[in-house]
Nucleic acid binder design. Structure first.
Length: 805
RNA sequence: GCAGGCAUGGCGGAAUUGGCAGACGCGCUGGAUUUAGGAUCCAGUAGGGAAACUUGUGCAGGUUCAAGUCCUGUUGCCUGCACCA
């Protein structure tokens, strides 16, 4: 039996659209529920079968919540600025605007074919001036609050994209997007001071319902460590050398210091250093290696450390007054802490290794290990020794005491350090939001007046990026020339554009009030809809989009735009769908399965069912078109139920089964266990077919449960069964816990833990009764004869285990 | 190197958290229907054994009346961090 899914799906999709079934407005009488999925980048390649997985899952959540009476906001939009579009436009001599428009049409058509219950009236597009006006506005607020600044700095330069990258966009030394080599370049860049929010971003995590791996990844990325900054005096200069350490307690064990090759003090002390040429050569060598090489090389081979002592310069350990040597070594990074360390070889493995190689003294200051063999790094158990006034203390207490001492003597201060760096925010490309700032020779960087927003992206003749690192916009002389908003003199516009992450950092707010002309979104709309109740997205966005957008939201909360600080209450993440061969699905491998093909052959409902049935939502799993066929078979069998019900079905003994299924499906959807929810629906259908009959009322219950997963077929059968209105807007079904229990149960009877027989009894009988019934079994009687019973264990309604000798 | 996760039939995966391992689906085998194929329906499907039984959740131990689940060790895969002081 098969059904005309093409006709049915078209019919119901049209009906939902015509009746604006899923469009929502603020309705204070109803509890709101905001479900968010990451809006796609509309690339030219279209979607493959991996993309709909999170969309369908969140659609199921939305549909169920809606049927449970919530006012559900489930919107969609386009993260449409970005390099692939620009590159494609350059290659094919088109305007990125045109390419974007075409891609959006294509994507929208594909998305709509899935039967998602999206509110399309709230569609947003980051490249729409009405949208990016507010992206620019938010940038100006950051600028005015001192959180956006321009700085000459070493940046990550992608040799292929000809563009700077944020630290987060460099993965294993190559460009996250194109895989090309990333080199260091000195450039003046716009930066956003995300580090000012490091602690808030960390603290906020605690009370959020984010899956654990997102939390740990975020925490690692922020990389908070607590310790102290300590000043070391230098013998031949009034300058001092500042270090950061997490182990101020080991200060007495600091027997030498190491500074990064890039440390500025080398230049300052140039004429005091007797082996300057040698140092210079080492610096030269180090600068040739990228950060990546410097850390990577040391791993593949033995961790052979290199370094040179700075002759003629000594540092003084502030707690014991001892003169100690200073080294330059590339195992110390200029980008973390102060770019200099105090080395405590007795209690740090790297320092130990270095000290062994250069034959430097190793002093034990924490007892508990064997420093003749290796560094003792334990902070839990040790007792301080050789440390003057710290002797006898535990490490934790020593830390407190020494920090206090340093502060009293003004030679150091307790300090918290973060690995998180500020966000490199400018890109030297065309297809992005222009940065709304003017560069005035007299006034410096000046924000343009808010009334001039949006600052439109001008049409240029060529979008080609330049090797000089200047944005294509810089060639637009007419556009670049302008007047300083402050002093009125001739000035120039900033020609860099914002990164793709800008538009996506606040889109969830715009959905709340997408057409607002006066502000990003009205306070009333934000107060009603925000925060997002459930946000699902890819793991690859954890240290990028997720962190950036939380930063913006926290900031917008601080300046009073939004009432809630944290934008997302719950975050989940989906696993990838792999190709049938288990490899990654990609165009270059030629193994891409197109959802359009699947839908035209098996229908959107079967497709949705298989996307969910394929496996554990959080895990990667290979696609199998054969599995898809199984779901189509299920849909066909479901369609057959209508004839069964209409041919005068009688009430069956399936009440318990129905209550169990309602419970299972209801709970499974909340826990993203769509695969087992569908399995239980399949089991129920199998049971119905075994009996061969069901009533219209029972069918309606089943359709309600099926509706979130396979909405088209459910609506059609609901209609055929005489159901009123749209099932999608109908009520969810509830279950009675008492009715989920069978009244007859099968109990496994074990002897010494092995199942020897099974008995059927009434549910809920006493343990005593269960044992008596078990012993009544002929088989068990036989096996027990002549043996001594040691123990009897009963698991109510499940197991009787008799232990014998 | 460090931290975390995972390992279950031919395949994707279940298992109410210590209580009958293999739900559900794919695939496969046999049968029915069909001119044939496809589709559909019925039966079977972890291994060994004719059967009673017995062995089975990466590997080796352990705890327990009872272990896929807990503990110790080990191997393999995945993810994160990676000289972060």
């Amino acid at each position: 039996m098969t059904y005309d899914f093409r006709e049915i799906e078209k019919k119901w999709q049209k009906k939902w659209t015509d009746e604006k079934a899923f469009n929502v407005t603020e309705d204070k009488s109803k509890q709101k529920y905001y479900v968010l999925i990451e809006f796609p980048y509309p690339s030219g390649q279209g979607l493959h079968v991996g993309h709909p997985r999170p969309y369908v899952a969140m659609d199921i959540v939305s549909r169920k919540k809606r049927m449970q009476g919530y006012n559900v906001l489930f919107p969609m939009g386009w993260d449409a600025f970005g390099l692939p579009t620009e590159n494609y436009a350059i290659k094919n001599k088109l305007h990125p605007k045109t390419v974007t428009k075409d891609n959006i049409i294509k994507f929208k058509r594909q998305l709509q074919a899935f039967g998602l219950s999206l509110d399309w009236s709230r569609e947003v597009d980051t490249t729409d001036p009405g949208y990016y006006k507010w992206t620019q506005w938010i940038f100006l607020q950051l600028f005015k609050n001192g959180l956006a600044y321009k700085k000459e700095m070493a940046v990550n330069w992608c040799t292929s994209c000809k563009c700077v990258l944020a630290n987060e966009e460099v993965v294993n030394g190559v460009c996250e997007r194109c895989g090309s080599e990333v080199v260091r370049r000195e450039k003046s860049q716009w930066m956003l001071k995300i580090t000012a929010y490091a602690q808030k971003l960390l603290d906020g995590l605690e009370n959020l319902d984010f899956i654990e791996r997102v939390k740990t990844q975020t925490t690692n990325w922020i990389g908070r460590s607590e310790g102290a900054e300590v000043d070391f005096n230098i013998t031949c200069s009034s300058e001092n050398l500042k270090v950061f350490t997490t182990r101020p307690d080991t200060l007495f064990g600091a027997t030498y210091m190491v500074i990064a090759p890039e440390h500025p003090i080398i230049n300052d002390l140039k004429n005091k250093i007797s082996n300057y040429a040698e140092i210079e050569a080492y610096r030269e060598e180090a600068s040739k290696k990228s950060d990546f090489e410097r850390s990577e090389l040391s791993n593949t081979t033995e961790k052979e450390k290199t370094g040179i002592e700075i002759k003629g310069v000594k540092a003084i350990n502030p707690v014991n007054g001892k003169e100690i040597p200073v080294f330059v070594s590339d195992y110390v990074l200029i980008s973390y802490g102060t770019g200099a360390i105090m080395a405590v070889p007795g209690h740090d493995t790297r320092d130990y290794e270095f000290a062994k190689k250069f034959d430097l003294p190793i002093v034990e200051v924490v007892k508990g290990g064997d420093i003749a063999k290796e560094a003792f790094t334990d902070v839990e158990t040790g007792i301080m020794v050789n440390s003057g006034f710290l002797d006898g203390l535990e490490v934790a207490d020593a830390k407190k005491k020494i920090t206090q001492f340093l502060e009293d003597k003004k030679i150091g201060v307790g300090k918290i350090n973060y690995k998180l760096r500020d966000w490199v925010f400018s890109r030297q490309r065309y297809w992005g939001e222009p940065i709304p700032v003017v560069i005035c020779p007299d006034c410096g960087f000046v924000a343009i007046d808010e009334s001039e927003l949006p600052l439109l992206l001008p049409d240029v003749e060529s979008y080609e990026p330049t090797d000089t690192g200047e944005s294509p916009l810089s060639k637009m002389t007419e556009w670049v020339k302008c007047k300083c908003p402050k002093c009125g003199k001739a000035a120039e516009r900033e020609t860099d554009t914002m990164p793709q992450w800008a538009g996506s950092s606040w889109y969830f707010m715009r959905y709340c009030d997408p057409k607002n002309k006066d502000c990003p979104a009205s306070k009333a709309a934000l107060d009603y809809w925000m925060p997002v109740d459930w946000y699902n997205g890819g793991m690859e966005h954890t240290t990028l989009h997720l962190l950036y957008s939380r930063f913006w939201a926290l900031f917008l909360h601080d300046i009073g735009v939004m009432s809630c600080p944290e934008p997302y209450l719950k975050r989940t993440s989906h696993g990838m769908i792999l190709a049938e061969d288990g490899g990654k699905m990609s165009k270059s491998r030629g193994n891409v399965v197109n959802p359009d093909d699947m839908i035209s052959e098996y229908g959107a409902d079967a497709f949705r069912l298989y996307e969910m049935f394929i496996g554990d939502f959080e895990k990667s799993t290979p696609w199998a078109t054969n599995g898809m066929k199984g779901c189509k078979r299920f849909a066909d069998r479901v369609f057959g139920l209508i004839d069964m019900a209409k041919s005068g079905g009688v009430t069956l003994n399936l009440e318990v089964k129905f209550h169990q299924t309602i419970k299972k499906v209801t709970n499974d959807i909340d826990n993203l266990k769509m695969n087992t929810a569908i399995a239980s629906l399949m089991t129920l259908v199998n049971d119905i077919y075994d009996i061969g009959s069901l009533t219209i009322d029972e069918l309606k219950i089943f359709l309600t449960l099926l509706c979130p997963f396979a909405p088209h077929i459910s609506e059609e059968l609901w209609y055929l069964a005489g159901g009123k209105g749209l099932l999608s807007l109908g009520n969810w079904v509830s279950y009675d816990e008492a009715k989920t229990k069978e009244n007859a149960v099968e109990i496994a009877v074990q002897i010494n833990g092995k199942v020897r027989d099974k008995i059927i009894t009434e549910a809920g009988i006493s343990n005593k009764q269960a044992i008596i019934s078990a012993k009544n079994s002929e088989k068990i009687k036989e096996m027990l004869s002549g043996r001594e019973i040691v123990k009897e264990i009963v698991v109510p309604d499940k197991i009787v285990n008799i232990v014998v000798k």
